[in-house]
Amino acid sequence: MSEPTVPQSQPPVIKASNLDLTFQTNDGPVHALKGVNLDIGKGEFVSFIGPSGCGKTTFLRCIAALEQPTGGTLTVNGMTPDDARKARAYGYVFQAAGLYPWRTIGGNIRLPLEIMGFSKEEQAKRVKKTLELVDLAGFEKKFPWQLSGGMQQRASIARALAFDAEILLMDEPFGALDEIVRDHLNEQLLALWSRTGKTIGFVTHSIPEAVFLSTKIVVMSPRPGRITDVIDSRLPRDRTLDIRDTQDFMDIAHRVREGLRAGHAYD
């Protein structure tokens, strides 16, 4: 469907071949993922889009070793996902910010650093650095309830970034936020991506969000959960919100919408 953008010299960071995941339920087996093939190269921004039940979150959770595939192979940094998890290869941002209410913003970002055994000075340095990265400098001593939803989600991104994993996995991180805040955070996320060069996997419901952010858009469809289209974006890596009014943007958005519609035709 599309040419791989990964240079031949560099092996993919994430590689899925013929991946299956079947949940056994009381109503019989549910095919959350079936025959998923995907390569994600270093520094790519990959969005997963599709209706509920298409397996986009499940696929992200497989990469994070939070789910165990029942068939096929999946490697992260050339390792099994579980080894990659133990090597702390990725930071994971959940749908809800999930900050601990009994810890300050700084304390929340310090949490994974404490768990991973960074020294006190290193912790302080990294907390300061990541807070600046997500534009929350000066909020270190505040408690989560003193921040808005958007700021909390930024803090949770900072927490996922604090230990410098090369991969950032994000599961509908801005789903609960309003449109204006979401646009703003999308811009900030792009800026952060271009500064850090991380590989990002991003699950979303929103077509504009997927097209605006990604270098690669993976369109998925439910029952069984599978990939129906992989779109390599022609949009330049440096983009502002204005790009949404260009023809290229609209063409890609159109193709995504067509892909989603085709997936629905099975119902």
Binding site: A64, A65, L66, R85, K86, R88, Y90, G91, Y92, F94, Q95, A96, G98, L111, P112, I115, M116, F163
Partner: peptide
């Protein structure tokens, strides 16, 4: 989610 989060940090 909070327990999953702990798992992601190993």
């Amino acid at each position: 989610m909070q327990l999953d989060q702990m798992r992601t940090w190993n």
